[in-house]
């Protein structure tokens, strides 16, 4: 099953997403900052990154640029509390954009779809 990296500076949310993705059958890892996330991407080569945008230090948009610069084979799903980032041109570069919700169904569905698309493209 695909490896998924969760990057979020909220420990409880990381736990929640990891729990849900594992239950859904994914192999999960998590990072509490963008910088840590970039390291893990290089070392662990996840298939997909669930990336929070607003984080202390490097934010998700900057991290997205780095990810795409280094290895555009990694799928990125932006997961944020703000719907307004949808209007930021930079976020178009991500595979998908999901607004955070306590109902993780949308996030799970989106991740599945993105992975299927990537797989089909290969």
């Amino acid at each position: 099953m695909s490896k998924i990296l969760i990057v979020d500076d909220e420990p409880h949310l990381r736990l929640l997403y990891e729990t849900e993705f594992r239950r859904a059958g994914y192999e999960t890892m998590s990072a509490g900052s963008a910088a840590q996330g970039l390291e893990i991407i290089q070392s662990m080569k996840p298939a997909l990154v669930v990336l929070d945008i607003r984080m202390a230090g490097m934010d998700g948009i900057e991290a997205l640029q780095h990810i795409l610069d280094r290895d555009s084979s990694v799928a990125v799903v932006l997961n944020t509390a703000y719907s307004s980032y949808k209007d930021n041109y930079m976020t178009w570069a991500a595979d998908a954009y999901v607004t955070k919700s306590s109902d993780v169904t949308e996030l799970l569905d989106t991740v599945r779809e993105v992975l299927e698309k990537r797989l089909a493209a290969k």
Binding site: L13, L16, Y17, R23, A81, K100, S102, V104
Partner: peptide, 16 residues
């Protein structure tokens, strides 16, 4: 915004 993240985790775990 400050309420949002706690709400996501409360609701998320309640669902779990």
């Amino acid at each position: 915004h400050e309420l949002r993240n706690p709400l996501v985790s409360i609701g998320g775990f309640a669902r779990t």
